[in-house]
């Protein structure tokens, strides 16, 4: 029993890491450009489908695909910001929120429909696995461990970049005080564009992991976006470690509720957590108060 629970905890943490990687992009996008990107789960979907095409079309190694995906989706993110978000970015906060939800909802619908059209509506997966490692009575699925290690590496690189680079400091400045950042000469449109690039690239990489671990169908975009929203609300907006912690909490909660109450109760956990956290601590468990 104890071993089984430990096993569940490990799976939960590994699942949470995958959630966190994509959720972080949503979080910085909301922080920097105040856009609630409903299409974020669909960026993950696109990343997953592109890796599927590269894996079966060109026979690339699943972990090399990741390297190909990062530059492609940086450009996708840049284009997304430049052509869709920039035209609405000057509106008042309330109008921007409404327009951004409408717009990204439109993108999300178009993406899932087009990908169902081009690739079929059935669930897909990449058949790639590694032998599991067992230590005593514990079994570690090594593919998940490897993915978790890659996610941790990416998180470290990203957090170093965001801490030390000019763009990273500008992002935090904009999140904290938009007008103040403008006054000291931060080029908000450009930083916003880079933010979308990073957000899209992290989501797409998460997608290329996702399709190795789970069956992926064209309609999972919006449900995933809601999961990520629950995570960033849990961890507080705009914080990388908050997203990681929020993701792990959600992953653990899903694994344990699935174990104790049956698999059908895994899905609602994210929504219950989202509502509870918003009601009890709107600023997130670890977040500071946001006005």
């Amino acid at each position: 029993m104890g071993a089984y629970l430990t096993q569940l905890a490990i799976l939960g943490v590994l699942l949470g890491g995958l959630y966190a990687l994509a959720a972080f992009g949503l979080s910085i996008i909301f922080g920097v450009s105040r856009v609630l990107n409903v299409a974020h789960g669909d960026l993950l979907l696109l990343g997953a489908l592109l890796s599927y095409a590269l894996f079966y079309g060109l026979g690339m190694h699943p972990f090399l695909i990741m390297l190909a995906i990062i530059p492609i989706f940086l450009l996708v993110g840049f284009a997304f910001e430049r052509f869709l978000i920039r035209p609405i970015s000057n509106r008042s906060p309330h109008e921007l929120l409404i327009a951004s939800i409408l717009l990204t909802l439109g993108v999300s619908m178009a993406v899932s429909d087009l990908s169902a059209w081009l690739g079929g509506a059935s669930a897909k997966g990449i058949a790639y696995s590694l032998p599991s490692i067992s230590i005593g009575s514990l079994v570690f699925p090594s593919i998940r461990l490897l993915i978790m290690a890659l996610i941790l590496a990416m998180t470290l690189v990203l957090s170093y970049y965001l801490k030390s680079s000019y763009v990273g400091r500008a992002m935090r400045a904009i999140t904290q005080d938009r007008e103040g950042a403008m006054i000291v000469g931060v080029n908000i449109p450009r930083v916003s564009m880079i933010t979308f690039g990073i957000g899209a690239a992290t989501a797409a990489v998460a997608g290329s992991f996702y399709i190795i671990l789970f069956p992926t169908n064209p309609y999972l975009g919006i449900p995933l976006t809601v999961k990520y929203l629950a995570i960033i609300v849990l961890g507080g907006l705009g914080s990388l470690s908050g997203a990681l912690l929020g993701g792990i909490i959600l992953g653990l909660a899903e694994q344990f509720s699935g174990f104790y109450f049956g698999g059908i109760w895994q899905q609602p956990v994210a929504f219950i957590l989202l509502i509870l956290i918003l009601l009890i601590r709107p600023q997130g468990i670890f977040g500071r108060s946001i006005t």
Partner: peptide
């Protein structure tokens, strides 16, 4: 897709 594109145009 068409429905989504209408939403995008209207939002912009």
């Amino acid at each position: 897709t068409a429905y989504g594109i209408v939403l995008i145009i209207v939002a912009i």
